[in-house]
Structure formats: structure tokens, C-alpha cells
Amino acid sequence: MKFALVFPGQGSQVVGMGRSLAESYPSARAVFEEVDAALGQNLSRLMFEGPAEELTLTANAQPALMAASLAVLRVLEQDRGLDLAEHVQCVAGHSLGEYSALAAAGTLTITDAAKLLRIRGEAMQRAVAPGAGAMAALIGAEPAQAAEIAAEARQGAVCDVANDNGGGQVVLSGDAAAVERAVAIAQGRGIKRAVMLNVSAPFHCRLMEPAAEAMRQALAAVRIAAPLVPVYANVTAAPVTSPEAIREALVAQVTGTVRWRECVAAMAGAGVTRFLELGAGKVLTGLAKRIAPGATAAAIGGPDEVAAFSAA
């Protein structure tokens, strides 16, 4: 039985992630050492020991989450006999996790993925002045409802649908005042919960255009290979295969909606019945179970979970 590999996005980071895996497997340590060398920073120490406020910085969290995910994959491949082409039907990642998915599929090297994510994180942080942007989660909202609320809240400002995560969870992003208006409107429309999120910038909205341009330039200088297995892109919820299409999807993703619900539904529609989330956290595991009720999902982040996967 083939399965899909999925890779988490920002917010899943936690101090200690990857540490037990690195202590147990030289193949995992090699991934962390490669990322450290690529960035000229002891990022692995920050991942293992903190402090949390430094790990949470966008420029650190993004490559750190990729490193944690790829370390798990390398252990499964080198120590547990996983063959990507033979055992995996497709891959996808949420936001920055798309870079992890592309590295998993052999499209990007780990070194290039780490450098690109550092550029991406720094560019996203620079794109909007602190406090000028905001994000909010609408819990219990359908995508069409969320889009209507965002449109009503704009009033000449930016308020876009950033994430359609599935399971009745939609995230809005944009100018702080417009997002705050959207929360108030949602509360008056009977949405189950509408809450402002504690984020450092308004990701996946039109305010991120300077960051998209930075990624356009960075991606133009990187070699991109054809993926070994299909990679479902956030902005199209469909596989991307050619290097140029991959570049375009990654640039569009900076300002576009992460269509995660549609990505999971499309993979399930293509025959995927099992989703494995590699790296930190279990957010995508829970979403997969809600989006594709007939499928199974599990998270693999540490030695115990690696052992359980091997036994299964």
C-alpha cells in the first residue's frame, strides 16, 4: 500500500524537536549538520535547547522545521528501508512545508531548501512593519463564508484568505484593522470562534508581495530537478512537475492561499488512503482525518514513532 507524506508548516516548532532522533540515528544528525553548515549557524542547538523565543523567529523556524522533517525522512530511508519511488504515492507540505516536500522528492537539495527558507523567512518579516498586519482564525467557517467576511472587512485595505486548512478552519490575513473588522463581522455571523492569532507578520496575503519578489530572485538562482513523486502545490492543489512550474508555484504561494483542504482531498481522490506527517507536531495528521474520513493518518517525529512505523 502506497501512502502520502505531508510536511508541517510554521507554528509546529517546539524546543527539543529532532533531538532524540539525532541522538539515536547518525543519518538524522547528518541532516542537522548539513543545515547548520548551509546557514553558517548552529541551528540544531537552537532546535534542541532553545530559547523558544529565538526558535520562533520566522527566519529560524522555517529552516528548523524543514530540518526536523527531512531528518525523519532520512532515517526512514537509510535505516528503515523506505524507498520513496516504490512506497510513496505523492508528497505535500503546508506553507514552508512545501519546501520540505520538494526536498523529500529530490527537487531541491537540503542545503538549497535551508538557504531558500532563510531568505523566505527574513523577507516575510521585512515585508510589513511590526504591528501593521495581522492574522485571524475562523473556526467553524466554510471557505465561501470566510471569503465573504474578508471582502466585507476590506474597506480599501487588505484582508485575504490565507489558509483553507479544512475541518472548518480558515485563516484570514492582511492589514491589522481589516482583520480585526473581519473578526467582529464573523462573531456577528454565528461563526463558532473568530480569534486573532499571535503571529509576527501577515503571511499569505497581498502585503507579502515584496517577499514574493525576493523569492522570485532567489529561486531563479537555484537548480530545481523534476520530482521523483508528484508534489501537490499549495496554490493549485494539484501536482507540479516541471522546474518552471515549481518556481512559479513557490513564488505565488508567498501571497496566495494555502489550499490545504483541497490538497488533501485531491490526494485522497487520487487513491491515497494513508497520510504520514513527518517532523514536528501532529497538526496535519488531525486535519487529514477530518478532510479524508476514510483515510488513516499518523505523525512520525521521534525514535518511538519510527519504530512503530517500521513494525507496521
Rank of each mutant, 00 (worst) to 15 (best):
M1H: 08
F3L: 01
Q13L: 12
V14T: 15
G18W: 08
G18Y: 08
S24D: 08
Y25K: 02
R29F: 15
A30C: 13
A30I: 12
V31K: 01
E33F: 14
E34Q: 10
V35C: 05
D36G: 06
A38K: 04
N42Q: 15
M47D: 04
E49D: 12
G50T: 03
L55A: 01
Q62V: 12
L65I: 11
L65A: 02
M66N: 05
V72F: 07
L73T: 03
R74K: 11
L76Q: 00
D79P: 12
D83S: 11
L84T: 04
E86S: 13
E86K: 13
H87P: 06
A92P: 04
H94C: 05
S95A: 06
L96A: 04
G97F: 10
Y99K: 00
L102C: 01
A103Q: 05
A104F: 13
T107W: 08
A114N: 03
R118Y: 12
I119T: 14
R120L: 11
V128Y: 02
A129Q: 09
M135H: 07
A136D: 04
A136H: 04
L138M: 03
E142V: 07
P143R: 00
E148S: 14
A153G: 06
R154E: 12
D164L: 14
V170Y: 09
G174M: 06
D175G: 13
D175C: 13
D175A: 13
R181T: 01
A182F: 15
A182W: 14
A186E: 04
G190H: 09
I191Q: 00
A194D: 10
N198G: 15
S200F: 10
P202E: 06
M208S: 08
E209Y: 13
A212E: 03
A214H: 09
A214E: 07
A214T: 06
A220H: 09
A220P: 10
V222L: 02
R223Q: 14
A225E: 14
A225Y: 12
A226F: 00
V229Y: 03
Y232H: 09
A238N: 05
V240A: 05
T241V: 14
S242L: 09
P243F: 01
A245C: 07
A252G: 15
V254S: 04
G256H: 02
T257P: 11
R259D: 04
V264W: 06
A266C: 05
A266R: 04
M267C: 09
A268L: 08
A270N: 13
L278P: 07
G279C: 07
A280H: 09
K282Q: 10
L284R: 02
L287P: 00
G294I: 11
A295T: 13
A299C: 02
A307E: 12
A308V: 12
F309R: 04
A311M: 11
